Simulated assay, not measured.
Amino acid sequence: MNTNHHVTDWTWLKLLCSTIIATVALEHSQIDLLISKLFYLNGQWLLEKGAQPYALIFYDAPKALLILFATYLMIVLAIKYRTPLNADFSLNHSKRSKYILPLAVREISYLLIVIIIVPTTIATLKSVTHVSCPNHLMLFGSDMPYLDLWQSIVAKTPAKCFPAAHASAGFSLYGLAFLPTWRKYRYKIFEAVTALGWTMGLYKMLFGDHFFSHTLVSMLLSLTIACALEHIFFKRFDENKNSQFHPTKPTLADTQKR
């Protein structure tokens, strides 16, 4: 196996460990409180929840664009599945080819699954962690105590704020960085997606919907999922490709059969 192609073989496990460490170390920490206090001045958050045009730019538009992108991927996947193998050349040179993402079916399937699984996983975790948002807490002018993760789970508070789900929609695009076709653009894609996810996360932090750790854990978990799925989707493909260039030597039994 080409180890250069499979740096992700154990990277996903390291990322998972980093996610757990960040959760334990930062969730319910002074770092979270200090950062949130920067956005809470004179008894008010820097931004009012739902204020326009910020809600449109940083909340509604990104969600709508992600849904449209996922829908587009489904359409492209359906077109590629319906296109016979001997028609690939004509499809690539047809007028509509400019609207078709130049990726293999395996890559489009991987990307679509990452976009679906990342927000779904984080939304599911939110429903079981019961962690409060900063704007729910007595520390920031509301009525709920500041509980740690375990206390929140046991108390089953009505809050559902950890990890950050909205930012995970942006972080789900990390799948783009793991596509074999775009491997040479991996770091540029990683930087762009990180900036997008943190912009969406910071927007929610400005009116107390999330602590810093909520967005950080969301980012690390999104990376973990994208990396683990990359290992599942593309490892066998690369192994088969390498075996074609490095065929195994025939055994004595194989020679005798001939």
Rank of each mutant, 00 (worst) to 15 (best):
L216C: 02
G170T: 06
F233M: 13
A167T: 00
H130P: 03
I189P: 08
Y146C: 07
G141P: 06
P119S: 03
A226V: 00
K126N: 04
A192W: 06
F140I: 13
K156C: 12
S152R: 02
C133H: 08
E230S: 15
M219L: 07
T120S: 12
A123Y: 12
G170H: 03
V118E: 02
T181E: 13
F234P: 03
T124S: 11
H231G: 09
P158M: 09
I232N: 09
V131I: 07
F212T: 03
E230K: 14
H214R: 06
T129M: 04
N135G: 07
T157W: 05
L221H: 02
K184A: 07
A192V: 13
L176H: 14
L206Q: 13
T129D: 02
W182P: 06
I122F: 04
M144G: 07
D148Q: 10
S172M: 05
I232L: 10
F190Y: 11
T124Y: 14
L202F: 15
H130Y: 10
F211D: 03
M219V: 07
C227T: 01
L196Y: 11
H210V: 06
K188A: 11
T121V: 14
H210N: 11
L137F: 15
S152Q: 07
A226I: 00
L216V: 01
V114G: 04
S168G: 04
H231Q: 14
V118Y: 00
T124W: 09
K184N: 09
V114M: 02
I189F: 10
G208V: 02
L220S: 03
M138P: 02
K160T: 13
T121D: 03
L220C: 00
V217A: 01
P180L: 13
G197A: 03
L179F: 06
M219N: 05
H214L: 14
N135W: 15
I122M: 04
K126S: 03
F140M: 15
I189D: 09
V217P: 01
G197T: 06
Q151C: 07
R186L: 14
G208C: 09
V154T: 13
S222Y: 00
F190A: 13
M144T: 11
A167G: 02
L147P: 03
P180K: 08
C227E: 02
S127K: 13
L206C: 13
G175I: 10
A155N: 08
R186F: 12
A195K: 10
M138I: 15
D148V: 01
E191G: 09
F234I: 07
S142Y: 12
S168L: 08
L220N: 00
P119T: 01
S172R: 00
S222T: 01
I117C: 07
K188L: 14
V217G: 02
H130V: 13
L176A: 12
K160H: 15
K156R: 15
P134D: 11
F190S: 11
H136R: 09
F178C: 11
G201S: 03
A226F: 03
S213W: 01
I189A: 08
